[in-house]
Amino acid sequence: AEVPPEFLIKHPLQNTWSLWFYDNDRNKTWEQNLIELTSFDTVEDFWRLYHHIKLPSELRQGHDYAVFKHGIRPMWEDDANKMGGRWLINLEKKQRNSDLDRFWLDVVLLLIGENFEYSEEICGAVVNVRPKLDKIGVWTADTSKQQANLEIGRKLKEQLGIHGKIGFQLHRDTM
């Protein structure tokens, strides 16, 4: 029987995305610890990667994942991030098993599926696994675009079902 086309053609993403890992090796510099693992540009390739790697909750404390548009490094200094900021979702330790992994997956799917109305303002997302407080940050390109940034924050809260406030930090302030 003929295989239906949708099983033959991989579903292309609007953008190519890179998965980064931050290793937290004390003997290395911060930049040496930040490693671009691979990049992907189809839904199928994303899932193949996702099934292949550890979940955030399985990472050692001090490690990060970042998913950024290919060509943007997950650091303030990158030209695409300099004028930008991040929406920050804090997760207590007890949420590590209940919320961390599903929030992270939902955020990544929002990114790669271009589900933000102002998706061109999106640079990427970072998940920090830390002793007390895990953090998921969604990085945007230009903090002067207030409506775009607010819409991105609203969509995040809606998708993740967060009722309280979430904070937005300008990178230059965090610097």
Binding site: L13, V43, W47, L109, G113
Partner: peptide, 18 residues
């Protein structure tokens, strides 16, 4: 311009495709 958008549910449906 146009943009390739995938809903979460659609991407989830491809989670185990070969």
């Amino acid at each position: 311009g146009t943009r390739i958008v995938y809903e979460r549910s659609f991407m989830m449906s491809l989670r185990h495709s070969p």
